[in-house]
Design a protein around this nucleic acid. Structure first.
Lengths: 154, 154
DNA sequence: CTCATAAGTCTGAAAAAGGAACTGACTTGA
DNA sequence: TCAAGTCAGTTCCTTTTTCAGACTTATGAG
């Protein structure tokens, strides 16, 4: 597998994997959604080596997930902020959190609860069909080739 | 980071990452949802080395995502079938596909289209709040510690 | 007997990750 | 003004994973 051109595959899942398909990147994104923005903060939260953190942040900036914004001129210092493209990863993260809550939980209960500010309630994320609004299940979905070629789930 | 105990972290995202947080595993799951079930079929579809495929399938079986079911007694041959726990990963895969469609597309258009058998229409997956049914956005969600401890997105 | 198929295992080389010290441009406090 | 601290990285070396491809075991077909 040529991982360096995975983002050009005719499969949307491969293209997504090219960007967020590794453990450190996902953990970095978790911190981003928890409003962590600075190099030192990521490093101490995750205990990732500085080398890898530096490389992963560059990659996320290159793919337009994060913006590198100066917050101090002298000395030059930057922080990393989610772009809209990055914010749009939220459903992926939430789907993963929800699966973990459901299938990997232990007797201690959920680590975090989520409150929807809009309605004020504690909620779970549910994936529904954009057309009929019903919850989606794998077996109710039929795939067929789109204009960007056939094969693969997406 | 001790990746081997990631599934015991007090964070549902970490626990999910422990299971599906690598590129090959996600691609193997893609094939599972496309109804691929046998060792040789995975291998030729993905061009993954047999060694890694073997290891990843074992891991998915160990975590209860796949079941190893005999389909021939002599010689003994097995196929790998998604369990309910595995089928429940569908929203994660679909969320990734949808993000790829939206943000990593090219001029050729989508590689695959999805039809919801229930309503008969071509659809996109949408993540909504289980309580009010409104689409979820990162900024409308407030997290607070649950019984299984604080910190981390989930 | 020989070839083909399926599901793996083994091995040596290449790539990625890990650990820890180092750099450079400041700021703060004594 | 001198030492110590902060922040955002970079460099270097070791250990672990991954990769590519050959080998194995069991069996059926011709």
């Amino acid at each position: 597998m040529k991982w360096d051109t995975l983002d050009e595959e005719p499969c949307s899942l491969s293209r997504t994997i090219a960007v967020i398909g590794d453990r450190w990147t996902l953990l970095i994104l978790r911190e981003c959604f928890l409003r962590v923005r600075r190099f030192e903060a990521f490093q101490s939260a995750l205990q990732i080596t500085r080398h890898l953190l530096s490389e992963r942040l560059k990659k996320l900036v290159r793919f337009g997930i994060l913006r590198r914004v100066p917050y101090s001129e002298a000395p030059k210092r930057y922080e990393y902020i989610l772009t809209q493209k990055g914010l749009d990863l939220y459903p992926i993260i939430m789907a993963m959190v929800h699966w973990g809550d459901t299938h990997m939980g232990d007797e201690r209960g959920r680590p975090l609860l989520h409150e929807h500010k809009t309605c004020g309630k504690q909620f779970d994320p549910v994936m529904v069909c954009s057309e009929c609004g019903e919850p989606l299940h794998a077996k109710q979905v039929h795939v067929h080739p789109g204009p960007g070629r056939k094969e693969a789930i997406g």
